[in-house]
Write a protein that binds this DNA or RNA. Structure first.
Lengths: 225, 225
DNA sequence: TTGACGTACTTACGGCGTAAGTCTAGCGTT
DNA sequence: AACGCTAGACTTACGCCGTAAGTACGTCAA
C-alpha cells in the first residue's frame, strides 16, 4: 500500500505557501487556515511551524509568489510604453487570478525577493526609456496606484456585469423619494445596464491616459545600442 | 450612584458602528471584535445582534461611515478640476484616518447610502463640468482607481519616511552578491533616503497628470447659469 | 392585571492561531 | 554495532473569535 499521503516529498516553505495559495484561490483567504493548509499537505497544523514562522510569514510568501507570477518588463525594450502596458496587463491578470492578493498588500511590510526584483525591473525599464530618477519614481507611483486601485474596484464589483448589479440598481431606484441619486440612476440606466457593458474595459482607457501623460526627461537609453 | 455604564442612551446600529470604528482606528481591524465592541458600549457581545445582522453588517456600516466623512464635490462648481482635487484630498485624508477602510473595500458588495450619495455627487460634478455619460464613467474610474491605489501603497509603507525604510534598504544592500536590484538600490540611495523625502508628496503629481488628461466632451454646464 | 414585545442577558459550539512539550526515525560519531 | 543528537511531525491545551439558541426582565397597550 502507498503511505496515506505522499509524505515522501519533504515539507518546505515553498510547498506550504503554494498550498495556502491554492486554498485561498478556492475558498477565499479565510479558508486558508493553518489547519486547512496542513490538511491539504497531509500533515498536522503545528508541523507547519517547522518551516514557517507563523501565519503572517505564509501571507508574506503568498504576496511575493503573486509578484513572481507577473511578467517582468523587458529591461532593453526600446518602447517603454509597450513594456508598461504589457506588464500592467500581466499584473492585472495575476491579481485577478488571486483575488486575495490586493487585500493582503496593505498590512504587509516585508517585500520578498520576487517583489524586489519586480520593482527593480520596473525602474530599469523606465530608466532605459529615458526617465530620470525622480521622474521614474513619479511614474511607478502613478502606474502602480492606478493598477492596484483598478483591480481593487474591479474585484469589489459583483460578477460579470449584470446579475448582481441588477440588485443594486433595484435598491437605488426603488423605495426612495423620486430619485435621490439622479446622476447615478442616469449612469446605470444609460450606460452600465447596457447589454455589452463590462467594467474591465475601462482599464486600457485609464492606463493610456496615464502613459500619455508621462514623457521621458533624459536622452533615450544612454547605454542602450 | 450612576449606573455602571450610561446605558441611558439607547443602543443603535449607529452607535455600534461608531464604536467599531473607534476600536479599529485604535487597535486595527482585528481588534474590533464583537466582544470588544460590546465591551466598549458597556454591553455583552450578543446584545449587538439586536441592532445589527452580524459582523459583516458592521463592516458594511463602517465603510459607509468613511464615505460619509468625505467632503462631497460641490455640484455647481464651475471648476471641475478644483472640485476633483478637493474631493480627492478629502477622501485621501479620510482613508488615512481609517487605515482599515481600503482593505475593507473589496469583499464588500453592499454600498450604503453615503456611498451612493458620494458617487452621485462625483458624477454630478463631472456632468456639470461638461462630461458626457461615458466619459464621466471613464473619469470616475481613473480618478478613484488612482486614489484607492495610492492610499493602499501609502499605507503599506512603514511610517514617516526613514526609520523602517532603513531596514528594508539594509536588506536590499546587504548579503546579496554585488548588487542584485541595481535600479532599486540607485533609487533608494539617490532619492528615497534623501532627507526631505516623503512618499505622500507623489499624490498631487499623479492626480494632476490624470486630471490634465481629461477633457470635457460636451458644452460646459448645460443647465448651469 | 395581563400579555406581548423589545432588549439585554447567559451558555455553548466549533474553529482560529499558536505556546509548550513529546515521540521517533535517521544520521554522524565513536 | 551502539550511542546520542537532532530535525521534524506529533498531541494537547489556551484564550480568542463569530454566532446559534434559549432565558430573563422592563415597558407599554389592552
Amino acid at each position: 500500500m502507498p503511505d496515506r499521503r505522499a509524505s515522501r516529498v519533504p515539507l518546505t516553505r515553498e510547498r506550504v505557501v503554494a498550498a495556502a495559495m491554492a486554498l485561498a484561490d478556492e475558498k477565499g483567504q479565510a479558508g486558508a487556515s493553518m489547519r486547512a493548509i496542513a490538511a491539504r499537505l497531509g500533515v498536522e497544523a503545528m508541523s507547519l511551524y517547522n518551516h514557517v514562522a507563523g501565519r503572517d510569514d505564509i501571507l508574506d510568501g503568498m504576496v511575493d509568489a503573486v509578484f513572481a507570477e507577473i511578467e517582468l518588463p523587458a529591461p532593453d525594450d526600446a518602447d517603454w510604453k509597450a513594456a508598461m502596458r504589457d506588464r500592467a496587463a500581466s499584473a492585472r491578470a495575476a491579481l485577478r487570478r488571486h483575488p486575495w492578493a490586493v487585500g493582503l498588500m496593505d498590512s504587509r511590510g516585508h517585500p520578498g525577493p520576487a517583489t524586489l526584483r519586480h520593482h527593480d525591473a520596473m525602474l530599469g525599464a523606465l530608466r532605459t526609456g529615458g526617465f530620470s530618477i525622480p521622474l521614474a519614481a513619479h511614474a511607478v507611483s502613478v502606474i502602480d496606484s492606478y493598477l492596484y486601485g483598478f483591480v481593487l474596484q474591479e474585484l469589489s464589483m459583483p460578477l460579470g456585469a449584470a446579475g448582481d448589479l441588477d440588485e443594486v440598481a433595484g435598491d437605488i431606484l426603488s423605495g426612495l423619494p423620486g430619485d435621490a441619486y439622479p446622476h447615478l440612476t442616469e449612469m446605470i440606466n444609460a450606460h452600465i445596464m447596457r447589454p455589452g457593458y463590462d467594467y474591465g474595459r475601462e482599464f486600457p482607457f485609464g492606463l493610456a491616459l496615464i502613459l500619455d501623460g508621462l514623457t521621458p526627461d533624459e536622452d533615450q537609453g544612454a547605454p542602450a545600442r
